[in-house]
Simulated scan of single mutants.
Amino acid sequence: MTTKNSTTRTNSLNRNDRKILIILSHPDLENSIANKTIIEHIKKAIPESQLEVRHLDSLYPDYKIDIEAEQAALLKADFLIFQHPLYWYYTPSILKKYFDDVMTWGFAYGTGGDKLKGKHFLQSITLGGSKESFTPLGYNRFSIEDILKPMQQSIYHIQMIYNQPLYSYRNAYVPEIYNSMSEVKENAMAHAEKLIEKIQEFSKGNKEKVGTFIHKWFSHFDRLDENGYFIQYLHKDIEFTFPGYGNMKGHTEFNAWYYAIKEKLEVPIKHEVKNIIIEEIERNRFDIHFQVHLQAKEKESQKEINVTETENWKLIWDESSDRPIIEKYVVSA
Results as ranks from 00 to 15, higher is better:
Phe221His: 06
His251Phe: 05
Ala190Pro: 02
Thr135Ser: 12
Glu197Arg: 15
His26Trp: 05
Ile39Phe: 00
Phe121Cys: 02
Glu272Ile: 12
His55Asn: 13
Arg223Val: 15
Leu51Trp: 02
Ile278Trp: 02
Pro85Thr: 08
Tyr233His: 14
Asp225Gly: 05
Tyr245Trp: 11
Asn14Ser: 08
Val174Ser: 08
Ile42Met: 08
Ser49Ala: 10
Pro47Leu: 03
Glu176Trp: 11
Met103Ala: 06
Tyr109Met: 01
Ser130Arg: 11
Ser168Phe: 13
Thr7Met: 06
Tyr229Met: 05
Gly113Ala: 05
Thr212Gly: 08
Gln302Gly: 09
Ile316Cys: 14
Lys117Cys: 14
Ile326Trp: 06
Ser25Lys: 08
Ile325Asp: 12
Asp237Asn: 15
Asn284Met: 04
His293Thr: 03
Ile81Ala: 05
Thr126Cys: 12
Gly211Tyr: 01
Asp222Pro: 01
Ser219Arg: 08
Leu74Pro: 04
Asp17Gly: 13
Val184Phe: 01
Asn179Ser: 09
Ile42Ser: 02
Lys270Val: 09
Tyr258Asn: 07
Gln83Thr: 01
Phe254Ala: 07
Trp313Arg: 06
Lys115Ala: 15
Lys270Met: 11
Asp222Leu: 04
Lys274Phe: 06
Asn171Lys: 07
Leu265Pro: 04
Pro324Tyr: 05
Leu234Glu: 12
His191Ile: 11
Val102Gln: 02
Ser12Gln: 14
Ile269Thr: 10
Ile22Gln: 04
His271Phe: 13
Ser321Val: 15
Thr212Glu: 15
Glu201Phe: 07
Tyr169Ile: 07
Ile238Trp: 09
Pro136Thr: 11
Ile23Ala: 03
Lys270Trp: 12
His215Gln: 13
Ala34Asn: 06
Thr104Asn: 04
Trp257Lys: 03
Leu21Ile: 03
Tyr87Pro: 00
Tyr173Pro: 10
Pro92Arg: 05
Tyr178Gln: 10
Ser58Arg: 14
Glu319Phe: 10
Glu183Leu: 10
Lys76Phe: 00
Gln164Ser: 14
Phe79Ser: 05
Thr135Leu: 00
Arg285Trp: 12
Tyr87Gly: 07
Ile22Val: 14
Gly244Tyr: 02
Trp217Cys: 07
Asp100Tyr: 00
Glu272Asp: 15
Ile288Ala: 04
Leu127Ala: 01
Trp88Thr: 09
His191Asn: 13
Glu304Ile: 15
Arg170Val: 05
Tyr169Asn: 02
His26Asn: 13
Glu132Asp: 13
Tyr89Leu: 09
Lys4Cys: 08
Ile65Gln: 13
Ile196Pro: 05
Leu95Ile: 06
Gly246Ala: 03
Leu21Glu: 00
Gln50Met: 09
Ile305Ser: 04
Leu122Pro: 03
Thr111Cys: 00
Leu315Cys: 10
Asp222Tyr: 05
Lys328Trp: 10
Ile238Tyr: 09
Lys194Asp: 14
His84Pro: 03
Ser6Lys: 04
Pro136Ser: 11
Glu193Tyr: 08
His191Ser: 11
Ala333Asp: 13
Glu300Leu: 13
Phe230Leu: 04
Ser93Asp: 10
Ile20Thr: 10
His157Ala: 12
Tyr87Cys: 07
Glu298Leu: 01
Leu315His: 04
Ser143Val: 02
Glu253Thr: 01
Ser6Thr: 09
Glu68Ser: 15
Pro324Glu: 10
Ile33Thr: 06
Glu300Lys: 14
Ile305Phe: 10
Gln153Met: 14
Ser25Pro: 01
Ser32Ala: 06
Gly112Arg: 00
Lys96Asn: 06
Ile161Ser: 02
Asn163Phe: 04
Val307Asp: 09
Leu122Phe: 03
Tyr156His: 13
Asn306Met: 02
